[in-house]
Computed example of a mutant assay.
Amino acid sequence: MGSQELKHITKELEVNAPASEAWELYRKLGLLKLIDLKLTNIFQSTEVLKGDGGVGTVVKLTFVPAGNSSYTEKFTVMDDQRRVKETKGLEGDCLAIGCSVQILEFEIIEKSQNSSIIKSTISYAVKEEFQAKDPKPSIQIVEAIVQSSKKFLERNN
């Protein structure tokens, strides 16, 4: 497969909530519950295929309209010290249109006692034969998840 350079799309969003609370939402399966409650316009369903939210957990997100497409990912890093969660795409999204790798990382950065930054980074590589099409992961979906978590955290703080 030849070594491909990873491209990165990074976004940061400040949240008026402690980093510990934000991390509690992002680690394990908290985000899936939030997606099921708040993002029904984007996701038809979320399903844990394997695991309990720790490293090795595999989840499938099915997009609206029903059955149109889905994205399956595996949790690869869960670092409570650094507040970093990383997932690797297994199928769907960018992988379905020419990417060979898709990695999503969420990092919760403490700003002050009552505020934090949610940093989301999508790293991806494009297969050589698809370079001309320049496929990209759905950053809008990640942004919708982060915005929804910001609202949730600020309302509960």
Rank of each mutant, 00 (worst) to 15 (best):
E5I: 00
E5R: 00
H8I: 05
I9L: 14
K11R: 09
K11Y: 08
E12N: 14
L13D: 03
V15C: 13
S20T: 14
A22I: 11
W23F: 08
W23D: 04
G30R: 01
G30K: 02
L31I: 04
K33V: 08
I35P: 06
I35A: 12
D36N: 06
D36I: 02
L37I: 15
L37N: 10
N41Q: 15
N41F: 15
I42V: 15
S45E: 12
T46A: 06
L49C: 02
G56I: 06
T57L: 00
T57P: 01
T57V: 01
T62M: 13
P65Q: 13
G67I: 14
N68Q: 15
S69R: 10
Y71K: 04
D80N: 10
Q81C: 05
Q81W: 08
V84Q: 10
E86Y: 11
E86F: 10
G92N: 04
G92D: 13
G92Q: 12
I97G: 01
C99A: 02
V101A: 03
V101Y: 04
Q102D: 04
E105F: 05
F106T: 08
I108F: 02
K111W: 06
S112A: 02
N114W: 13
N114E: 14
I118S: 02
S120R: 09
Y124G: 03
A125R: 01
V126N: 00
A132D: 05
P135E: 01
K136E: 10
S138G: 03
I139P: 07
V142K: 06
V142G: 09
A144N: 10
A144R: 12
Q147F: 08
Q147D: 15
R155V: 12
N156Y: 10
N157Q: 14
